[in-house]
Design a protein around this nucleic acid. Structure first.
Lengths: 204, 204
DNA sequence: TTGACATCGGACACTAGTGTCTGCCTTAGT
DNA sequence: ACTAAGGCAGACACTAGTGTCCGATGTCAA
């Protein structure tokens, strides 16, 4: 079960009753879980899992699309917060990157099914746009590393970011496929990313 | 428009008439193209694009699933052939890898939309299983490189393969998103993969 | 306590797709 | 030229999902 904390969700311009808040949270949690295991989960399934009747979902989210958007925004928000919390701007680039990746990784664990969902649902561009908040946390860090010549400068930052993201996803993918142990994944992922973006496998 | 060459498709145990062969080829081509741009393309759309009527598809492919499977098998076959044609076993590992990646990349260009399709449709395991023919072409090469200590040996081969695949996909993804020029993508991709799997530098 | 808010439970209309069937026409292969 | 295979056109039944609505019941908050 995902956390109940609905941080930074819906600016709530209208005052909602307490039970309504509970419903929304339950729906988001259920959607998160249901969609992670099957990106095509129906509204009925989500409702059932949330312990709510289907019509109730429509009270809070006008369409299925709207619900999916909210779920994604929620997930991205959680991960972005985790990244920010790891202070990308502090310390040596390599060390900082390790720290941020570790934080990201732990937060990400819950959301991995969403990837397939969103690659299917959104255009490549749209998907990228929504990932921006996370990439933005990383970009200054990578640039800093390039300036200090610990990360390779012969390739554009955007590419290094894309590669980083991709390797993180690969790690989770390999875990799900049982081809790598969950206990080793984190170290493997970090070591690989460092090798990839610091053209010389830099290890502090 | 995709190539009309339906190499190595369907062992054809029963003799089909020439026009039937043409239909199947047209359907596969159309499916390839349609599904690449929208993984949810309907049978009607595919039929229209193939210049046949919807029912005709069902003459050759019993269900939608069957068609999708055939399309994927076709695409994987094409790429695998290209890889094999680049002779992974010949020459220095780094050079050989470059050569194989180049061949792969060129063949892959046509099939990129299929990725989203299949990640949505298949379980992670199933997807991986079907990618095996391609990974099998690469595995001995990577192992050879590890033995010669030009590729890093501190990570399992399966992981290095996964990372390689993932970076290739990322390159095509970035092209589609217009964040990297098509002309540079190949070199960028190869250089990054080499950096990632050959942890050259202080691994003391 | 009261009234507005929210949920329940179920019915309904609608849509979009899949897979089947039929009779007729066209075309390939011998 | 003949015949069987293949394709066409359109209708059909079916499924699974979305989104709406409504009356009845419960529950929060002032």
């Amino acid at each position: 079960m995902a956390k109940k904390t609905t941080t930074a969700e819906a600016p709530a311009p209208k005052r909602r009753r307490a039970d309504a808040d509970r419903s929304v949270a339950a729906i988001l949690d259920a959607a998160l879980e249901a969609l992670a295991s099957d990106p095509d989960s129906s509204m009925s399934e989500i409702a059932r899992q949330a312990g709510v009747v289907r019509a109730t979902i429509y009270v809070h989210f006008p369409t299925r699309e709207a619900l999916l958007d909210a779920v994604m925004e929620y997930a991205v928000g959680q991960v972005t917060d985790a990244m920010r919390g790891a202070e990308p701007q502090r310390g040596e680039p390599v060390e900082a990157l390790e720290r941020v990746l570790r934080a990201t990784w732990r937060q990400l664990a819950q959301f991995h099914g969403l990837l397939a969902l969103n690659t299917a649902r959104l255009s490549a561009n749209e998907l990228h746009r929504r990932h921006l908040p996370m990439l933005d946390q990383l970009e200054p860090l990578i640039k800093r590393g390039q300036k200090q010549a610990v990360f390779r400068s012969d390739l554009p930052v955007s590419w290094l970011l894309a590669v980083t993201r991709s390797i993180v996803h690969t790690a989770s993918h390999e875990i799900r496929g049982g081809r790598i142990a969950e206990s080793e994944a984190e170290a493997t992922m970090i070591s690989t990313i460092l090798g990839a973006i610091s053209g010389k496998g830099g290890r502090a």
